[in-house]
């Protein structure tokens, strides 16, 4: 479904975001990408829908080769590739329904979008998407009036309204509290399985990745350093990905935030004595 062949991303400032990435993701797979900040997780995800243009190799989604230079081709590709963000990225001032209808942009004539008069079919799709994530009763509320978990569900509904073949999720639950994070991720997993959508998700929390993903890809410095089914992603393997031993924060979600007792003694002493946590 999605094929990376020797894909490089070099940012305009010379930073190498992806370095010779070779990955093949099958239709209907749920893949979690793990790695430290700056390892290239977001770059990998954003290369798929062209939000970050790749600079070398070949990237194929379905039958189409992603071409970052061809704007209209890119729009056609994006209409089938939905994306979910850490900060939800809903438009706060308009209704939940209108937010979901943004997902219909690619199939709605521009004049309809401009005057805000969507067709009955588009509305029907939007309502079905809202039903799927279970917040159809909030359809006419302002998006900004919703809680974090509900806002992320609106974002998922917006993506579902695209009738996507692929869903990209960039840290989808990092802004949510742990129980909500599990619920939202569980919803995403269920919908993905129901509709047979290929799903690539960036994660910070190992236990979430292990509980929900079919397959885990570990990244370090723009390279794929681990790629295998979830069972094979043992602590030793992950420690190799992170290049350090795992800490409580890496694994914990249910008992996050970490209490003072979980921290090493010297760190606690520093906090109590009021030492600055940053060097001037």
């Amino acid at each position: 479904m999605i094929t990376f062949e020797n894909v490089d991303v070099i940012y305009p400032n010379g930073f190498k975001g992806l370095d010779d990435v070779n990955v093949e993701i099958a239709r209907g797979e749920f893949v979690a990408i793990i790695g430290l900040s700056g390892a290239g997780k977001s770059t990998l995800i954003r290369a798929v829908n062209g939000l970050v243009p790749y600079t070398g190799g070949t990237l194929t989604v379905g039958e189409t080769v992603v071409d970052p230079k061809n704007k209209s081709k890119l729009r056609r590709l994006r209409s089938k590739v939905g994306m979910i963000f850490q900060q939800f990225n809903n438009v706060g001032r308009i209704s939940v329904l209108n937010n979901v209808l943004i997902g219909r942009s690619a199939v709605t004539p521009t004049w309809r979008s401009l005057i805000g008069w969507y067709g009955a079919e588009d509305k029907e799709v939007a309502f079905q998407s809202l039903e799927r994530v279970g917040i159809v009763d909030k359809a006419y509320n302002r998006a900004s009036a919703l809680s974090g978990g509900q806002q992320q569900r609106v974002a998922i509904a917006r993506v579902l309204a695209q009738d996507p073949e692929v869903i990209l999720a960039d840290e989808p639950v990092a802004s949510l509290d742990p129980p909500t994070a599990r619920k939202v991720l569980g919803d995403l997993r269920r919908i993905q399985q129901d509709l047979g959508i290929t799903c690539i998700v960036n994660m910070h929390h190992l236990d979430l990745a292990r509980d929900y993903a079919d397959r885990i890809i570990g990244m370090r410095a723009g390279r794929v350093v681990f790629d295998g089914p979830t069972e094979e992603a043992t602590d030793t393997v992950i420690e190799d990905v992170y290049q350090r031993s795992l800490t409580a924060e890496d694994i914990a979600t249910a008992d996050f935030p970490v209490s003072l007792e979980d921290l090493p003694a010297e760190a606690v002493a520093g906090v109590v004595a009021g030492e600055p946590d940053r060097k001037p």
């Binding site: 939000l51 939905g82 943004i102 979008s113 695209q162 990209l168």
Partner: peptide, 28 residues
Amino acid sequence: PGPLEAADAAGANLLQRDRVAVLPAVMP
């Protein structure tokens, strides 16, 4: 820029993006 990126990722063209993501944000 978040909602603009979301509209881009949904395959909206420039006019649609300006209408659905920019205009509501600057309306007040």
